[in-house]
Amino acid sequence: MSHENSYKKIVKEGFWDNNIVLSQCLALCPLLAVTSSATNGLGLGLATTAVMMASNVLTSLGKGVISKAVRIPVNIIIIATLVTLIDFILNAWLHPLHKVLGLFIPLIVTNCAILGRVESFASRSAVLPSLVDGVAMGIGFTWVLTVLGGIREVIGSGTLFTNASLLLGDTFSFLEVTVIPDYRGLLLVILPPGGFLILGACLGIKQKVEQVIKRKQESSADLLARG
Rank of each mutant, 00 (worst) to 15 (best):
L115I: 14
H98T: 07
W93C: 03
Q217I: 05
S125G: 05
V212D: 00
S36T: 14
I10H: 03
N5Y: 12
P181H: 01
S220A: 15
I79C: 06
L188D: 08
I89H: 01
P129W: 08
I198C: 01
E218C: 01
C25H: 12
I79M: 07
P192K: 02
N75Q: 15
T171G: 10
E218P: 00
N40E: 13
K208A: 14
A113D: 04
G41Y: 08
T39P: 13
D182A: 15
A136C: 02
V212E: 03
D133G: 10
K214F: 06
L28Q: 03
V70I: 15
G158P: 10
G102Q: 03
A54F: 12
V154D: 04
G204C: 09
G116W: 10
M1F: 12
A80P: 05
G102F: 03
P96R: 01
I139Q: 02
M137V: 10
T178G: 02
A80F: 04
V21N: 02
W16I: 14
I105H: 08
Q24Y: 08
R71L: 12
L167C: 05
V65C: 03
L46I: 15
Y7K: 01
W93L: 09
P73R: 01
A27F: 11
I151H: 02
G227T: 08
L115A: 06
L42N: 03
P192S: 02
G204S: 13
A33C: 13
S120R: 11
D133P: 11
P193M: 07
E218S: 08
S125F: 02
Q24S: 08
G116S: 12
D222V: 08
V57T: 05
K68Y: 07
S55R: 06
K9R: 12
H3F: 08
E153H: 02
I198M: 10
S173E: 14
I72M: 11
I155S: 07
C29E: 10
I180G: 09
S23D: 07
S173D: 14
L31G: 14
K8V: 00
D17Y: 06
Q207V: 00
S67L: 11
T49K: 04
L187S: 13
N40I: 00
L199E: 04
T59P: 09
I190D: 08
D133F: 00
L131M: 13
M1T: 13
S130A: 12
S157T: 13
L107I: 12
V135Y: 13
R71H: 09
I190F: 06
V132R: 01
G204V: 01
L197Q: 03
K99Y: 00
G45P: 12
A201N: 00
V144R: 03
D87C: 09
I180R: 07
F15S: 00
F104E: 04
P73Q: 02
F161Y: 13
P30H: 01
L61R: 07
V65Y: 12
A54K: 03
T171W: 13
T110V: 12
P106M: 04
L115T: 09
K68V: 00
K9E: 15
N18F: 07
A50P: 04
G150T: 02
V132T: 02
L160G: 05
T178I: 13
L85R: 00
H3E: 15
D222S: 11
C25P: 00
A136I: 00
T48A: 15
F172A: 08
T35N: 15
F88I: 14
I20C: 11
R226Q: 12
A201E: 01
L166N: 14
L103W: 07
M52C: 07
A47C: 14
I10A: 05
